[in-house]
């Protein structure tokens, strides 16, 4: 009898482990999923700014924001992350990656060796990107200078150091859907929505997170505590921010608020990117933000 119970328990544990293994397996796209698209380096550069890649990946303290040596420490309630090198260096960076590798990293959060990335890398936003835009981005990043760097490994306590468990997190937070325009809204608002929710990944800081670190979508863009623990990230919905659309566009261009304070903290780096966008795109971002009612 006892033997039977023990055997049943072992069988249950094995089934549980098997289910965990299957459910948390990193899912990826294959070559057949990629659109037939001729890479456009110039547009890739534009997406590089729209995506704000340099904000985290540029070597800290370097004047050259295209030196993507990584190494920046990102503090979080789950531990400290160290931003990887994404320069084309074959050893320290991502030289040798295929376009499909970058697509899977950005929209699936999976590395070329098939393991999960931590969502400090904002793939829950990047998954909304058009694959053509990611392909262009790859073509641009291939043109950058390789950078050598020695980035420390992430410093995370148990259980957050078990990458496989991110498969469960992804079941909750990564739906795999590209951005779909809302036909009831203007082209301008849809363009802004794409830039904000996809490449711009604004929600990653401006939306509060739940206990597991997933975005609370019902509180989309309504502001959040700073992930670094000191200060607040403001809400940017129509209800939260009483700036005009022109004020928002001007702030994204110059870094100046309507009362000529200058944006600081992480937003200073964001403005270094948004200042490279076209005035039409900055206006689209403003129009979209003004269309999000907030609470």
């Amino acid at each position: 009898m006892i033997k039977r119970i023990i055997l049943s328990l072992i069988a249950l544990a094995l089934i549980g482990a098997g289910a965990f293994w299957l459910l948390t397996a990193p899912g990826t796209l294959s070559l057949a999923d990629l659109p037939d698209h001729e890479p456009d380096v110039e547009h890739g550069q534009y997406m590089f700014y729209a995506g704000g890649c340099a904000s985290c990946h540029a070597t800290p303290g370097s004047e050259d924001k295209l030196a993507l040596g990584g190494g920046l420490k990102l503090a979080s309630p789950f531990g400290d992350f160290y931003v990887p090198n994404i320069s084309p260096d074959p050893e320290d960076g991502i030289g040798g990656w295929s376009t499909l590798d970058l697509v899977n990293a950005m929209v699936k959060g999976v590395s070329p060796d098939g393991s999960h990335y931590y969502p400090a890398f904002p793939y829950t936003s990047y998954q909304r990107m058009k694959l053509e835009d990611v392909i262009d981005l790859k073509a641009f990043m291939d043109t950058l200078e390789p950078v050598k760097s020695d980035v420390p490994p992430h410093d995370l306590p148990f259980p957050f150091n078990i990458r496989r468990s991110l498969g469960g997190w992804k079941l909750l937070n990564l739906d795999g859907k590209r951005f779909e325009p809302d036909p009831s809204l203007s082209d301008q608002i849809n363009r802004g929505a794409y830039l904000v929710t996809g490449p711009g990944h604004c929600g990653e800081c401006h939306t509060p997170r739940d206990a597991l670190g997933g975005l609370e979508r019902s509180k989309w863009l309504t502001g959040a505590p700073s992930p670094e623990g000191d200060g607040k990230v403001p809400g940017i919905t129509a209800a939260d921010l009483d700036w005009s659309a022109d004020d928002i566009a001007y702030a994204l261009e110059t870094g100046f608020t309507p009362d000529y304070d200058s944006l600081g903290s992480s937003m200073a780096a964001v403005v270094r990117n948004t200042s490279h966008l076209t005035s039409e795109d900055r206006a689209a971002i403003s129009a979209y933000l003004k269309s999000v009612p907030g609470q």
Binding site: G223, G231, G255, S262, G264, S265, A268
Partner: peptide, 22 residues
Amino acid sequence: ALGAIGKTCGGCHETYRVKKDG
């Protein structure tokens, strides 16, 4: 002048100012 001086505002606020009022 706005460009040259303005750059130094954000250049300092990026590291040394923390927004508290959201």
